Amino acid sequence: MGLRPAQGEGADGTMEKEFTYEDYQHTAEWLLSHTKHRPQVAVICGSGLGGLADTVTQAQSFNYSEIPNFPQSTVPGHVGRLVFGYLKDCPCVVMQGRFHYYEGYPLWKVTFPVRVFRLMGVDTLLVTNAAGGLNPNFEVGDIMLIRDHINMPGFCGQNPLRGPNDERFGHRFPAMSDAYDRNLMQKAHSAWKQMGEQRELQEGTYVMLGGPNFETIAESRLLRKLGADAVGMSTVPEVIVARHCGLRVFGFSLITNKVIMNYESLEKANHEEVLESGKQAARKLEQFVSILLASIPPSGNAI
């Protein structure tokens, strides 16, 4: 038996049933039957970071519209394509575009691909995002390893694990104190040293807001006081579901803008700036991820 159907609001405002275990299984089996690739690592590309998928070798891609049960990406900078192949010698599947709560999707649909990847045999999830820098020491173009996160939507009950729990994926109450794999973070620092970059590889706490509007100055000040170093509108739901089903998780944010903190400033955050910063950092990010993935051994997880 799969998960008992629960109700969730769809993108068109109507109520729809959550996916059952069999729905995830159907999508995983469809993908496995349509590609010979067997990925070990899944990569979710944030806004403007989808160029990483273009470096995949022996690539085979599927538009999201082709894949059973897959949502559709509607945000500029998110192509909406699943790419299988190799990054360096690491077998990967790359999401060229993710889904967001602000698009109208319930969180169980935002995170749908993560469980599909788990059923396909993936053992490691790499999450990336474009984020605003709250830490005053950050500069545009910096990369911040995500050491921890603050799930603001979760404070008011918006959690992708809400509803009936299926033990075939994971326990009812998963720990999040070790959400981001410390060994992979150490490997990331080693990869960064190999690159010889002048700027230091940053490390900090990512906070998720629901979006789609950018933060007010008062909100930004509050988030900084809470201990957040970078702010965005994604990533946390995927991480929660990944940890729930036993995946190792590693994540980083590309700092695409410095968050406005004072009322005298005439600057405004905008999505075009985010995409442009992603373009400028593309080569650095590709090199960083390639070196990192080459150092990741299999975890040996099975479901």
Rank of each mutant, 00 (worst) to 15 (best):
H171I: 14
E238Y: 04
A191R: 09
G278W: 14
I260L: 08
F252M: 14
Q198I: 06
A188W: 11
L254R: 09
V236A: 08
R172P: 01
N270A: 01
K225G: 03
M261H: 12
L247H: 08
G278I: 14
E276H: 12
G211D: 08
I217D: 08
W192P: 06
A242P: 05
I255V: 15
G251L: 04
G246M: 02
K279V: 07
G204C: 02
Q202G: 14
N183D: 13
F214S: 11
L184W: 13
E272Y: 09
V239C: 12
G278C: 14
D181L: 02
T256A: 06
G251H: 07
Y206H: 11
P237K: 10
F250C: 05
K268G: 00
Y263A: 12
V239Y: 05
T235D: 11
G204K: 00
V259A: 14
E219F: 05
E215M: 10
N183A: 06
T235Y: 09
L275E: 10
S253K: 07
Q186C: 05
F252D: 05
E267G: 02
F173G: 00
S234C: 14
M176E: 04
I217V: 15
V241F: 04
I255A: 04
V207Q: 03
S265H: 03
A188E: 09
F214K: 13
I217Y: 08
F252L: 13
L184D: 13
D178I: 01
D229C: 02
P237I: 08
N213S: 15
K225A: 12
A188L: 10
E273C: 06
Y206G: 12
L226I: 05
